[in-house]
């Protein structure tokens, strides 16, 4: 099961992952065209700076996720097989409980659509867009077992 991880020391704060994420979730997937779309795509990932370090923050897909517990509509579930927290837009009522409880601040509200903005690991793509975009390889995706320490 692959996990999205960060090597914080390597993050230079260029925010290429943010742009790549917004682009991957745009309708056209083309940088120049995406800026003309009626509703501009929003990144699921944000680079935050704290204590002289940069943190590319996005959903950690916790096994024991607070957001899943807090979701009163049952729209958020942890899928054991995929190792991901999945979101069912049909069920979601936009109460923002998930936004409030996430200890990482990794879920952001999309006020317009009343939907939480969360990392979906680029769904069916072979590799998340942020991993591809990171020029310093600070964003990595690797098997869970490898990172035990």
């Amino acid at each position: 099961m692959k996990q999205l991880l960060y090597e914080v020391k390597k993050c230079l704060g260029c925010r290429s992952c943010e742009v790549a994420c917004a682009l991957a979730h745009s309708l056209s997937g083309d940088l120049y065209k995406a800026l003309d779309e009626e509703k501009l795509s929003m990144p699921r990932k944000k680079v935050l700076a704290c204590g002289g370090k940069n943190y590319p923050v996005s959903c950690r897909h916790c096994e024991d996720a607070l957001c899943v517990d807090a979701c009163m509509a049952g729209a958020l579930v942890f899928d054991k097989q995929k190792g991901q927290v999945l979101h069912d837009a049909e069920r979601c009522v936009g109460c923002w409980m998930c936004v409030m409880v996430c200890p990482y601040g990794a879920i952001r509200p999309d006020i317009k659509d009343k939907m939480p903005l969360r990392c979906d690991k680029c769904k069916d793509k072979d590799e998340p867009a942020c991993v591809k975009a990171c020029p310093t390889r600070a964003v990595i995706e690797q098997e869970k077992a490898e990172v035990k320490k």
Binding site: S16, V19, L31
Partner: peptide, 10 residues
């Protein structure tokens, strides 16, 4: 160099 920096491209 791929993917190239979106800020730079724009």
């Amino acid at each position: 160099q791929q993917p190239q920096c979106g800020f730079g491209q724009l």
